[in-house]
Design a protein around this nucleic acid. Structure first.
Lengths: 365, 365
DNA sequence: TTGTACGCGTTATCAA
DNA sequence: TTGATAACGCGTACAA
């Protein structure tokens, strides 16, 4: 052991290596400050500080600072049965859609002292359920859920039990909790309008999974938009998942029949799959077929060709979800509401006028 | 209140809404099973189960299952001062390099019952430090750090205090802890060999920040490789960060002089920035200048042109880091070691032979 | 093999 | 305004 200045003030020196220096407790602070632990607790706690004489508060805080005291959140949680922690459930962090959402959540919650516990569910209800339970065991104060199904017993159950939660991106039907989502319907509407304006009439939709709200909502919006333009609305194929592979498979199935001149993909990953399918079929985008994505994922503008897509404010989605949850956690009884964030169609190189095909000559007349 | 079957067995019914049903405690289980809480604890705990008569174990476990009992990790942590939780520090989750690493960590740790707490530091030492402290306060059992600097007092301090930790991706000099990284040097070596083979002689390096190990190691490897080919090794410019913007700026600075025919970028994001700089300068990749990235980020193969890059096994990086940490946490004293995972150069459309420029005619002779 | 007794660090409640 | 006491739920010496 090398000689050192006596510990205790300013910097708490490490004990003998490699054992970790014991953290000072509330008792240590109280003893040093000459008060009872309960008083020290009150002095250090924002909410109860006013109950303590200012001089005492000052003394306690000084000692706490000198000792490098930090509350033990574990002990506090045990007592208060809260944890200043919220659980975030996402399908898969490696899907580029989610990191910005999670960061938005984290940044917004950090301001209020909350920590985030994230879990990937891979869209597996069993994993979702077990993660949910594990987080509840850890006393999370609430949940932000990006994995909800359109009809989701787990979410219904949790909501009924009064678990504070907010849905983000994906919604659940008939569920009385707050939720944040992009304005999917408007996004699709603009997309169809854009394609129609370019001259497309044969427009197909590679829909996302219909058991998920985004899949169902965008499909409904597609149908409505096509109808409002007086066009066929039944050229639709459902992808099994929001993945490139599923997008490819879905489009290949669709191309089996006579092919559309434009495709509205359920999201960007599906659009990437459509790129693949087109390439395999020897078709070119946008010369033969135009494609539009959804979400405007990072780097999607640098593809070949750059993908026209509906920009979703992902980070803000997270921030807003966090806000709604904080409202709920604040105790104020808030009536649940659904917030739709605005979207914007970003036109790039994957959409162009349809090829001017020679139409089979009509019988003269 | 609607009528219900008496609670207690099978399914614990929710109390009056919206209050959350109280979770059963160890005492509840013990009472129901007709044993002392201590016995129930021993019966439920893997390590102490052998101390209890098998029949008792069975009874306790049945009751626990029936009641849906789960240990309260908070209470356990308070008692054991462990938390079955590890802290993961990353610069920024929205950088596509990190999600796969984090998933690898999570998946590997989940098998051992550990939970992951993630924090984004934005490469800010202050944020890193405060996140580190906050996680320690939450009794994390160890850390996996992807934010280490080449010379990092914070990491040195933690290591000296005996905090269990493993570095991933980025290393720190003279630090006696385990670490996992890609074999950067070999990756760069292969990259230079590839370019030389294509006929390039004027090769420049847009280096990552040199205060980070990846930046420094790759630069050193670049110099060594160039020397081994008998080429100039001083065409180097350091980017301020691993970002597109920094890559663009750096390359613009480099292009000010006479330009190289090929660029080894410090990573894929820097390579993207190089794309931008080239486009602004009216140069084409790979016709005028070849570019190679590093990491082989998701979707980087779909860029225009598809980027030649060094593939790093990101997920495995996470898995291996988790394993090393688990070893360390298991109590067995493990001597720290550095694991280098193999990389592979993936050649795509961004590299081609150099343009055959007319060389200024030499004086005859 | 099981029970007793205590403490982990904090806060809520009551009394002074 | 402060102190005393108990309790959150669990694990673990120690005793039986």
């Amino acid at each position: 052991m090398t000689a050192r200045p006596p510990a205790g003030y300013g910097y708490v020196s490490a004990a003998s290596l490699p054992s970790v220096a014991p953290r000072p407790t509330l008792r240590d602070v109280a003893t040093q400050a000459g008060v009872h632990p309960a008083t020290a607790s009150r002095a250090l706690n924002e909410a109860t500080r006013s109950l303590v004489r200012p001089a005492t508060v000052a003394r306690v805080r000084e000692v706490a600072a000198a000792l490098g005291y930090q509350v033990n959140p574990i002990a506090r949680s045990l007592k208060t049965s809260r944890s200043e922690t919220v659980g975030v459930l996402v399908p898969d962090l490696t899907n580029p859609l989610f990191p910005p959402i999670v960061r938005g959540i984290e940044d917004a919650l950090a301001d209020s002292g909350y920590t985030v516990l994230t879990a990937n569910t891979d869209n597996d209800p069993a994993r979702t359920s077990s993660n949910f339970a594990a987080m509840q065991a850890r006393q999370v104060d609430g949940f932000i859920v990006a994995t909800a199904l359109l009809d989701d017993p787990l979410m219904h159950d949790a909501a009924e039990r009064g678990v504070p939660m907010v849905l983000v991106n994906r919604l659940t039907e008939h569920l009385d909790v707050s939720a944040v989502s992009a304005d999917d319907a408007t996004g699709i509407e603009r997309t169809v309008a854009h394609l129609v304006e370019l001259g497309h009439r044969d427009i197909a939709h590679v829909a996302g999974p219909l058991r998920v709200s985004t899949g169902a909502v965008r499909l409904r919006a597609f149908r409505a938009a096509m109808q409002s333009h007086g066009l066929r609305d039944d050229r639709v194929v459902e992808a099994e998942a929001y993945s490139e592979a599923a997008g490819r498979t879905a489009l290949l199935r669709l191309l089996d029949g006579n092919r559309p001149t434009a495709i509205v993909a359920g999201n960007d990953l599906l659009a990437l799959g459509c790129y693949d399918a087109l390439a395999e079929t020897g078709l070119s985008c946008p010369d033969d077929v135009s494609i539009v994505g959804f979400n405007d994922m990072p780097f999607i503008n640098r593809l070949q060709p750059p993908l026209t897509s509906v920009r979703v404010p992902q980070y803000d989605l997270g921030v807003e979800a966090a806000r709604l949850l904080l409202d709920r956690l604040s105790g104020r009884t808030v009536t649940p509401r659904v917030v739709l964030l605005p979207v914007r169609l970003v036109v790039r190189g994957s959409t162009a006028p349809p090829p001017t095909v020679k139409r089979p000559a009509r019988a003269a007349g």
